[in-house]
Design a protein around this nucleic acid. Structure first.
Lengths: 342, 342
DNA sequence: CTGAAAGCGCTAACAA
DNA sequence: TTGTTAGCGCTTTCAG
């Protein structure tokens, strides 16, 4: 008494045509091959029977899984969910769905996760992890895996990428602080092993130089990770090393939050003693004490753009790799003010 | 020159056995059916050839997709990523992967998303949305779709569920405030149309009564949504209505954050004028100004438990529905203190 | 324009 | 213990 799900054959026999005709009539791509009235009749009957095509059978035949893999370090980092939603905004209407894996910034885990994605026959990869090692990247490229890098460039390997305009983001942050009167600005950089960390650190040095501010190499410290803890460690290190400064450009918001911990720990008043700027404009920054000035990055757009590019490279595998840059903007809040002594 | 991916047949002919034997040898479940040395040889050869089974073919044959659907309102709500990770913690080792859809709390979208999940042949559903309407729930149950509800109970329909101990959470919050000396405590409840909102509101009333605190119905206001804006609106409404109170138990952290907006707007000092407790213990609550006291809910565990239960009901469809409750704990922070006039 | 036939890669009776 | 056979549900040549 369980009503079996109708298959293509059921529709065919109900309509008095061959299964192949039903297949053609139901697929918009091939519908033109079928006489219009027949197609209409088949479609109507399919609907009446409540027919739902079985995508797995189609996938087996066409060797396309209709899924792509999204590789991120950690979904609980508020940085990533908007990117995921952006990706799905584009993928879902295109008939694709998306398998998400977390690498926890562990190289071995990253490799294992990408393996499992390939095992599941994903048609392409969107990779938003910082530490993807080059051998793996090369391997993927050699195997002709369609992919797009998010938030990082691939030096040496020719892979499409979508990144925020990091150079401009740093410019905006430094300009904002310089405009407030700061002359000795420190930078708590992201890990040097990540392209984002390196690019931002370089951009910081030149932004500072271009404005004739104090360009002291001692004012740039690289954090071990993109995390609160690592940010706190780096700031402690900087404070203990002794160079004076009145403002910090943090490599991202998490690092900036690490600074807040150190401020509390050492009785430093923000923004009066030290101003801080973050990057990413995470949610709820306006609720912090003090609210955090940050460079807003269009995460959802980044996801959308990455998905579009991936679909392109799935459709035309030969296409040249593009590197897309998305523009950013500054959100001034309570964590930045004039330095204490003009 | 593109080396075709080897199939089962390739392995079979390389090993000089029948494809069925290879299938049996490679599948741990059926390996016992094959003589050990043969199995070993087949496995070795499969490895040498770099053979990877094609899950799509297996899925077609076994009519199992190896995927489950996870239905949430919005991934960018920090509430959900830990749940997602919990789910994946359990699913991945079991060989399942997980398709995530966002409903944006829109009933029509919810239906469409669940449809698309079913179309993709998911073997079960984990549903973490508040507004799932009963007709849909009934329909799913009638069709024998395995599912688990997260964070909500299903009154009337017999479906397994995993929820935090909402009653105890409210108890903890009220107890904490009562211990500080508060006697008139308000509750900004979640929407009454959600089971969580209703349960917490009821628990609040009885917690207040049980302690002999002022049980004024005017001190409970339901928010239109589980959001900052709705929380702010509700608090404004409460303040304008006039009943005095020295503390607020917010339906969740987002609603509590909405209170912060109103405090800033009206020059109310928290915790001196009004104390606030949230629920969920979202990330970065300790960095807020003031840091927010909150009831910690074990989100990742909730996800894990939901996934375990779903796997169970996939494996034994007949099993009786269980309702699991997970315990919660209070994190006291800066947003709660003694009332101004002890 | 439609039907016939074959097969995607794998598994599961059944037979030997 | 292994091989044989058949087929999951669909698409896609190739004929007609």
């Amino acid at each position: 008494m369980t009503p079996q799900k109708p298959t293509l054959r059921d529709v065919a026999s109900a309509a008095g045509v061959h299964p192949a005709t039903v297949s053609r009539a139901l697929n918009p791509e091939t519908r033109a091959l079928v006489k219009a009235p027949t197609a209409r009749r088949v479609i109507r009957i399919a609907e009446e029977l409540g027919y739902r095509p079985n995508p797995i059978a189609r996938q087996l035949k066409t060797a396309k899984s209709g899924t792509i893999g999204l590789v991120i370090p950690d979904l609980t980092n508020p940085f990533f969910p908007p990117i995921v939603r952006g990706v799905e905004d584009i993928l879902a209407p295109a008939g694709y769905s998306c398998l998400i894996v977390n690498t926890d910034n562990d190289l071995a885990r990253e490799r294992a996760q990408i393996d499992s994605l390939r095992f599941r026959q994903v048609e392409g990869l969107i990779i938003a992890t910082a530490y993807l090692d080059h051998p793996l990247l090369r391997e993927l490229q050699r195997d002709g895996v369609a992919m797009v890098l998010v938030n990082r460039r691939s030096d040496g390997v020719d892979v499409p990428s979508v990144t925020p305009d990091d150079v401009d983001g740093i410019e905006l942050a430094v300009e904002h602080l310089a405009g407030l009167g700061h002359r000795r600005i420190a930078h708590l950089a992201g890990p040097g092993s990540t392209s984002t960390g390196a690019v931002r650190a370089r951009a910081f040095r030149s932004a500072v130089r271009n404005r004739g501010l104090d360009d002291d190499p001692g004012l740039v410290v690289a954090c071990a990770r993109w995390s609160e803890d690592a940010g706190a460690d780096a700031l402690r290190q900087l404070l203990d090393a002794g160079p004076s400064f009145t403002a910090v450009v943090a490599g991202n918001d998490l690092i900036a939050l690490g600074c807040y911990d150190v401020f509390a720990e050492r009785g430093i008043s923000c923004p009066h003693d030290i101003s801080v700027v973050g990057i990413n404009n995470m949610p709820f920054l306006d609720k912090l004490g003090p609210s955090l000035t940050s460079v807003a990055v269009p995460h959802q757009q980044i996801g959308q753009e990455a998905a579009r590019m991936l679909l392109e490279s799935i459709r035309e595998p030969g296409r040249a790799a593009r590197a897309v840059t998305l523009s950013v903007s500054l959100r001034a809040r309570g964590s930045t003010s004039q330095p204490r002594r003009g």
